[in-house]
Amino acid sequence: MNRNLLQVESLELYREDHLIFSDISFQIESGDHLVIRGQNGSGKTSLIRTICGLTQADKGKVLWNEASIDESLFNYYEQLSYLGHKNGLIPELTLDENLNYGLDQTDKDGKDQVINGFRLTDLKHSLIQNLSNGESRKTALSRVVSSKKPLWVLDEPYANLDSDSISYLNNCIGDHINTGGIVITSTNRDDSIATKTTELLIGS
């Protein structure tokens, strides 16, 4: 994989008159795992959405390989796989269909392996609406993990997960950064879950 570089320069965001975050700067490159820590309501999700270009910051900018993402949105999105609060799965379709009709190119073996790792193989042909919260979350995570994109941005990936899945997800993240990927996750837990991380604390 090519070396990639994500730079965030003094981001500032207001919602109406309420300051969500200000003066956030960092720089991460291939092989980094950034954990954004903060309490509920500290603006983790807003920051993540701003990094993905979904929300427009009032000040500052996000640069991918030294180009502002506003100017090269498609290049950026070609490298980005995002999982938000919402799983982005269509409840009326089965797990398998959801992964197949996704927008990213995936290879079948890699996908099966990931589904297996999350222990979802038996549920492959169940509708998403019949799955539990944790199972849906794992399906959504499988989509990100099996996408071959270098940058993963995961909002609260550990919520609703059992310990086996957490360790499997950590393995996947570990493999990904070892092969030159970049991962950004957010969490409201204090204990560290993954190893080898850079941390960013937001909110007071």
Binding site: L54, H85, K86, L89
Partner: peptide, 8 residues
């Protein structure tokens, strides 16, 4: 509501 629009 289910988030697939933001994925789009």
């Amino acid at each position: 509501l289910n988030g697939s629009l933001e994925q789009l």
